[in-house]
């Protein structure tokens, strides 16, 4: 039944289009002119439409900026995140200014210079002075933007990690696992050939650094304490994306990647600001298979005392793998 209805609608649409075409052809036959010749009247209608729709577009963009303002980057909760956000504000400001100059200009010109039969366009093929200006000015602005961008990138990527807590984030279809480095703050070696159902990350238990490592399905961080995340993947490329911390890094099988940052807001503080539902979430942001859309892990930022209580509940790999048989 529905298929018949769809077919009927399709036929009706086509019939309507044929009729529109016919009518426009007949009308112009009556007026004795070529139906497809663009007349002054057309130019006027289309020119005015340019202004109307162009204005409508600007209003639509402004409406979005106001209505969805809260979506413009979730609040940053890391030290480098604040720097990135300042760069974002400068770039976004620049973009919006240019957008709100150039787009109205385009639609305004289209309206203002719409064709009239007795008008002639102004023959204006080039002007070196103008062209130099609009090459040099963007170059200068961009130079500033590039330098600012590279500085921020440098701060982000080359953070001091000497005192950072080391945590491994391990991805596989479609689950994240975290490994805390334990009291020595050193991760034990690992090899994919060592992966068993019990030793899910393939940790080399011969390595003495491995004994105190702890596995978890959520990550707890101490506020204002630098952390160094190291990433591995077991199967395909995943991407660890922590939007609130302004952190993202691919997890690549056969390769170790890393990202260091310092969280500045506890989960509790964020809940007060953003609502009680708030949680820091690690998302997968690289297409990794059917359940890619649901590959997540919770992050919790808390005080040192809260962290100590939590970490104490986790057993070490030594206890898990060597003593429990």
């Amino acid at each position: 039944m529905t298929n018949i209805l769809i077919a009927l609608v399709a036929i009706l649409i086509i019939a309507t289009l044929v009729q529109i075409t016919r009518v426009s052809e007949l009308l112009s036959e009556l007026k004795n002119q070529d139906v497809n010749k663009v007349t002054d009247k057309d130019n006027k209608t289309q020119g005015v439409l340019m202004l109307v729709v162009g204005t409508g577009f600007m209003v639509f963009v402004l409406w979005q900026l106001v209505a969805w303002n809260h979506l413009l980057l979730p609040p940053a909760s890391s030290v480098h995140g604040a720097q990135i956000d300042s760069l974002m504000q400068v770039s976004m400001g620049l973009i919006l200014v240019l957008f709100f100059i150039l787009t109205p200009m385009l639609f305004f010109f289209a309206t203002k210079y719409r064709g009239r039969k007795n008008n002639t366009a102004y023959f204006f093929s080039h002007n070196n002075k103008l062209e130099v200006i609009w090459t040099v000015v963007p170059t200068i602005v961009l130079t500033g933007l590039i330098i600012y961008g590279l500085k921020t990138w440098d701060i982000t990527m080359n953070a001091d990690t000497t005192n950072a807590t080391v945590i491994e984030v391990y991805g596989k279809q479609f689950q994240w696992t975290a490994r805390m480095a334990g009291e020595d703050n050193l991760l034990g070696k690992s090899n994919y050939r060592g992966v068993t159902s019990k030793n899910a990350l393939g940790i080399d238990m011969e390595d003495e650094n491995a004994a105190d490592d702890k596995l978890a399905r959520e990550v707890h961080l101490v506020v204002n304490q630098p952390v160094l995340l190291k990433f591995r993947s077991q199967d395909v490329i995943h991407s660890a994306f922590l939007p609130h911390f302004r952190v993202q890094m691919n997890c690549v099988p056969g390769l170790s990647t890393k990202f260091a940052f310092t969280p500045t807001q506890t989960t509790t503080e964020m809940k007060e600001q953003e609502g009680q539902d708030f949680e820091y979430i690690l998302l997968c942001n690289k297409i990794c298979g059917a359940a890619h859309y649901n590959m997540q892990m919770k992050f919790v930022v808390e005080t040192q005392e809260e962290y100590d209580t939590w970490i104490a509940t986790k057993i070490t790999l030594k206890e898990k793998l060597l003593t429990q048989k």
Binding site: N43, L106, A110, Y113, R114, G115, R116, T120, A121, Y122
Partner: peptide
């Protein structure tokens, strides 16, 4: 600049 002072045929 091309559109400026043109005689646009839509």
């Amino acid at each position: 600049a091309t559109l400026w002072r043109a005689n646009i045929r839509f």
